[in-house]
Write a protein that binds this DNA or RNA. Sequence first.
DNA 1: CGCCATTTGTACGTATGTATT
DNA 2: CAATACATACGTACAAATGGC
Lengths: 263, 263
Amino acid sequence: MSPSRPQEFRTAARPSLRQEVSEAIKSYILDNRLRPGDPLPSEAELCTALGASRSSIREAVKTLAVLDIVEVRRGHGTYVGRLSLSALVEGLAFRGLLSPEDDFRILAELTEVRELIERGMAERILATLTDEDLDALDALVDEMDERGAHDGEGFAECDRAFHRRLMEPLDNKLVSQLSLAFWDVYAIVAPHLKGISEEDEAGTIADHRAIVRAAREGDADGFVRALAGHYAPVRRRLAEARADTEARADTEAAEGDERAATA
Amino acid sequence: MSPSRPQEFRTAARPSLRQEVSEAIKSYILDNRLRPGDPLPSEAELCTALGASRSSIREAVKTLAVLDIVEVRRGHGTYVGRLSLSALVEGLAFRGLLSPEDDFRILAELTEVRELIERGMAERILATLTDEDLDALDALVDEMDERGAHDGEGFAECDRAFHRRLMEPLDNKLVSQLSLAFWDVYAIVAPHLKGISEEDEAGTIADHRAIVRAAREGDADGFVRALAGHYAPVRRRLAEARADTEARADTEAAEGDERAATA
DNA sequence: CGCCATTTGTACGTATGTATT
DNA sequence: CAATACATACGTACAAATGGC
């Protein structure tokens, strides 16, 4: 409205060529009703078609690739992407690794959102899950049990598959993808942080069994309670680690800074 | 495990230079404990430091810019980004514009997630909102009322500000940002779709007033009911439009395809 | 198997616009 | 205004990967 630009202004003031090219490619996809996996013109063709240099085309394509709007296969071509939430995962993961003040805050928030989604969808989940789904969930818990302590990575994979299978039957694909994306972010960030106590594998397995049991009985209240019981210890561990870090930060602050110069 | 690669394999088989550069820049930010707004080395410096050409550096920087991990101000320099959810918004918006089968499905899912988040956070919201927040919310509804029908865009902005103000006081910044991001996606996608009936402005205002009233009284149940009442008509309109589209698609399908050839 | 065409990836050089000093 | 530093854009050349011959 006024000529004074408040720092946080839309960058679209002067659309860079790359932006234009990017929009043009998106329009191409939309106008031609392309679907994920469909091939796109090669970079050279885009150059002539859009009248831009290959550098600009490439930068635009790369930005779209980050959003999974296009997918680039080297030596093969460019295709319409799968439109996954990979960008959300990468962005949140970095935020979690960066988070200046409190490393665990983002993890706590992440866990809270996951629980929020699963609890909020509880009734819908119960109504959706088939016997087949429930059997598959039981099988996943069994597999989890077998792997147990001697395969931490496999254990995590089972946990992921469990929560995926729990949400995926829903007709709302967005929530299931979001839920899974948050799981992925957690899995990326958690290992990089120190002071987070080990996962209670036996407890996790018991929690999952309780969740399946409640679901099988169509017990919505029990289902929600089981979910709460499942997430409570995670939140507790995060809170402990957080308190630990804060205490440590205090003592370190008292000792003075010793890493001021890095460059 | 086996040499046979199942199509959906991690692309990380051979990390391209650009990927490495991208990771290197992220590591630089993390190792130096940089915060949003802090300056990054210029492209030339990154070239020498990472031993890559400008092309690779530039492409890497652009991909990070999409994720708002870095922010480039032309003629100025490169800085650590604000880590917003802009990538999520852009990705979901495109998905909404693309969605082949059902244009309104993504909007319905979006609305559902928003309601899910706000309802799931109801108690926390009530516990968090101060009198100041409530006054601000009332003021926003008043402003909404004044603008009314003669300023559709301003009306939408007020709606956005309302829901933002509702969630922002929460200590979980992730949920408030997600909620707002979904609002943004809706605002981007909705105008591009035909057949979605006009918003009931008077009803929206009344809904918002009911929400604030319940919040002021600390009435959790009433708050949740007010939210449900607020989102119900949106979902109904979406369902109507969806049914309309499906009916139209059926008749069109009977008329035959006429856009088979594009290339 | 090698060869070749296509396509993307990387590198370098140069010119231009823009913001700061 | 001039100088400087930076980002933007273009063009070209070659390297590497993929698939078909």
